[in-house]
Computed example of a mutant assay.
Amino acid sequence: MTQQAAALQTYNNELVKCIEELCSKREELNRQIKQEEEEKDRLQHDIRILSEKLSRVNESLAQRLAARATFDRTIAETEAAYAKVLHFVCFPFLL
């Protein structure tokens, strides 16, 4: 019986050691999970901020592109009118 009791005690000790190791690994895994969840939250926050900034830049860019198109149109119309004036001044007899 003492041999069986000793074997049982050995198995019991090994089982307790395995449970402790599993608990230790679980704690480490929990620490890693918490760390990654915090990083995820930071990244989502950064994405939200950058998305808002991108939206503002896109709006500003659209306004500036529209303004440039207006300038281009005005310049082209003015140059065409100026060319007609020059043509009239230089060649009045062609009228």
Rank of each mutant, 00 (worst) to 15 (best):
R48Q: 14
D41N: 01
I33F: 04
L43W: 02
K34Q: 13
R48D: 04
K34C: 07
E38F: 02
V57D: 02
H45N: 08
R56D: 11
K53Q: 15
N58A: 13
K34D: 13
I49M: 08
H45Q: 10
S60V: 03
Q44G: 02
Q35G: 06
E36A: 12
E38S: 14
R48V: 01
E36T: 13
Q32I: 12
E52T: 04
L43R: 08
S51H: 08
E39H: 12
E59Y: 04
E39F: 04
N58G: 06
E52G: 13
I49V: 15
E39G: 06
L54S: 14
H45V: 00
K53P: 00
E52Y: 07
D46I: 07
L54A: 15
E52S: 13
L50G: 01
S51F: 00
E38N: 10
S51L: 03
K53L: 09
E39A: 12
E59V: 06
I33P: 01
E52K: 08
R48K: 15
Q44E: 12
R42P: 00
E36C: 07
E59Q: 13
R42W: 02
R56G: 05
S55Q: 12
Q44W: 03
L43N: 01
N58V: 02
I33C: 06
L43G: 00
D41H: 06
Q32G: 06
S55V: 02
L50V: 01
E39S: 13
E38T: 05
I47M: 09
I33D: 04
H45K: 09
D46M: 13
L61G: 01
L54I: 09
I47A: 05
K34V: 03
Q44Y: 03
K53N: 11
I47H: 05
Q35R: 08
K40D: 01
S55W: 03
N58P: 00
R48A: 14
D41M: 02
L54V: 09
L43F: 04
I33E: 09
S60R: 14
I49K: 12
Q32D: 12
S55F: 06
E36V: 06
E37L: 10
R31P: 00
L43D: 00
S60E: 14
Q32V: 12
E38D: 14
R56V: 10
Q44F: 07
D41L: 07
E59C: 10
S55R: 10
S60N: 11
R42H: 11
R42D: 03
L50Y: 06
K53Y: 05
I49S: 02
Q35Y: 06
L43V: 04
S60H: 08
K40S: 08
K34H: 10
D41Q: 10
K34W: 00
Q35A: 14
H45G: 07
D46G: 01
V57A: 06
S60C: 06
Q44S: 08
L43S: 04
R56T: 11
R48W: 07
N58E: 15
L61W: 05
K53A: 11
E36Y: 04
K40F: 04
K40M: 07
I33K: 12
L43M: 10
L43Q: 07
I49D: 04
K40V: 03
E59W: 01
D41T: 02
S60D: 14
R31F: 09
S55I: 02
R42T: 03
V57Y: 08
Q32Y: 05
E39K: 15
E37I: 03
L61K: 13
S60Y: 02
I47S: 01
I49N: 04
L54K: 15
